[in-house]
Design a binder for these strands. Sequence first.
DNA 1: CTGTTAGCGCGTTCAT
DNA 2: ATGAACGCGCTAACAG
Lengths: 344, 344
Amino acid sequence: MNSDVNRSPPLGRVTIADVAREAGVSVPTVSKVVNGRYGVAPATFKRVTEVVAALGYETSLVAASLRRQRTNVIGILVPEFESFSAELLKGISTAATGTGYELLAYSALAPGGISAGWERRSLSRLAGTLIDGAIIVTPTLLMPTTSIPVVAIDPHDGPGGPSTIDSDNIGGARVATGHLIELGHRRIAHIRGRSDLASAQLREAGYRESLENAGIPFDSTLVCDGEYQAALTAKAARELLMRPDRPTAVFAANDMSALGVLDAARELGLRVPEDVSVIGFDDVPEAASSKPPLTTMAQPLLDMGAQALRMLVKLLDGEDIPNHVQLPAELVVRASTGPAPIGF
Amino acid sequence: MNSDVNRSPPLGRVTIADVAREAGVSVPTVSKVVNGRYGVAPATFKRVTEVVAALGYETSLVAASLRRQRTNVIGILVPEFESFSAELLKGISTAATGTGYELLAYSALAPGGISAGWERRSLSRLAGTLIDGAIIVTPTLLMPTTSIPVVAIDPHDGPGGPSTIDSDNIGGARVATGHLIELGHRRIAHIRGRSDLASAQLREAGYRESLENAGIPFDSTLVCDGEYQAALTAKAARELLMRPDRPTAVFAANDMSALGVLDAARELGLRVPEDVSVIGFDDVPEAASSKPPLTTMAQPLLDMGAQALRMLVKLLDGEDIPNHVQLPAELVVRASTGPAPIGF
DNA sequence: CTGTTAGCGCGTTCAT
DNA sequence: ATGAACGCGCTAACAG
């Protein structure tokens, strides 16, 4: 079935065949010109180049990647685009300019929330053909072997997987809790993060250690789950703050949950930090513009993204990279923490 | 899983052929099972499903998209991932959850900065096969016809193109300039944005109108180019602020350039807002955490992204959508603007 | 119900 | 220097 009838040029996408026909040469010749290969007469080269420009032709990533082994595209796999991954993306983008790699950020956005194994499915869908390597943000699965080079940011952890980047979660949590203790707080609650992430477990561990070091007995009723999300946290925090023996301070596992605590406090008419102190983790941009501005443990998110990209590029170049890179977390004191109220 | 005795996956990616071989069926049968089509015997279905799970197979987006007409993937084309596009991305992501569409954000990251026509090339690379529709951020080209549905955010403008979304740039600029005038400023400089974008031109127009309405003569020496970038702006602003007859206020075309002005002022030992007032545009997250926090015209970036996505989905469903949607820009007064210094 | 055939758009040997 | 033939992984149409 030769349905290759001449169609008017700009109806659909311009394919390599359109260029070939227009330039009066064969398809492979166009391919050679486009890919800068030798073996094309200067005159032909010029004519084809002109037609390419005139028609605005660009090789289809899909078709090319299917045939070729290398695409020069780096994939960034995220569960969704929110503040945390967006910051990483900025850092990645900055570090990627000039490397010759293109960036493809992908989110499968499962309807019923983030489903287990999303990273494996996403990787399978893109790897091998579309992307040369991937940066995976908050993977929850152990992926001992992957078909392409991978660097993970803030992963579930575990040995034998890809190289990982995170910040000093346990140390940061100690500092955060210590900050509250120094302010005189004794009843300090903790909103836990996503249980499938090492960062959440380490932050809880740091919280408990810090309590213990200060001789404050651990009270399990002061710990609840926020899953790193503002809405979920607000609900849990409301109950916590309505108790007669409510905590005077809350260490939220990340900024989004800290913002949730702020919401809950506002609803209940509690003043921050006069009635309750709140500290978060991440230093996402929103932390600076909340009311009051959030005291938090800053993770160098831009740096983490940039380093991840550099590591992945090295990996793609066949160089060795460290198995694990940890960046520091720093206390940023804003206005959501203050001295413990007297009488508590 | 039951049998973790995975026979080592064929080195690379697991393909449909691997599954077929392992399950003892033909490739199309696997395809049918994977895509949930009818016409497969229960026993076969079960066996294939098991092999798929054991091998961790997932259909390649690339191969499937090449053959299929619809991929259920929406592309978001950006020149680079920075604060502005990142905010839009968050809004898009939120609006996309539950729609059944996956998100693919793409940045070609041209080495020598953003090159003209990037959006056309990017679209050509992805459209037709990989993505069903696209949201293009700050396109500078007129694209009267595209092969797939497109919605543009903050475009170069021009009739006949795709549906566009922006905020009230000219009105916002009037308000911004008016804010400075009300504070008593008369020598007000303007840092222009990217000349290839309508938003930049409209903001300059609003600035000039506002000046004229207040009876302040336009002084072309008070206008310089910042290209929406902090570094470029800082350089230009330094010269501006070193002049003996320096302006007492600066309206920067966006927040990034406003931050550049802040940098320049700091370098020169000028206090903001005591010596110079600075106002930006966008209300990017960074604006709230600068020193001093930036007064700016807030664009509803999350909303703009969300609306763009909803419009694109309607377009993909064959519904009609407005040709142009404009959202309001609102003055957010922080700490970078104050009364004009006396004696100027 | 299952397997066979035929491409999708492109890049790559080989022949000319 | 150029073109014909083939294959990448997958799926739509049909044949069996």
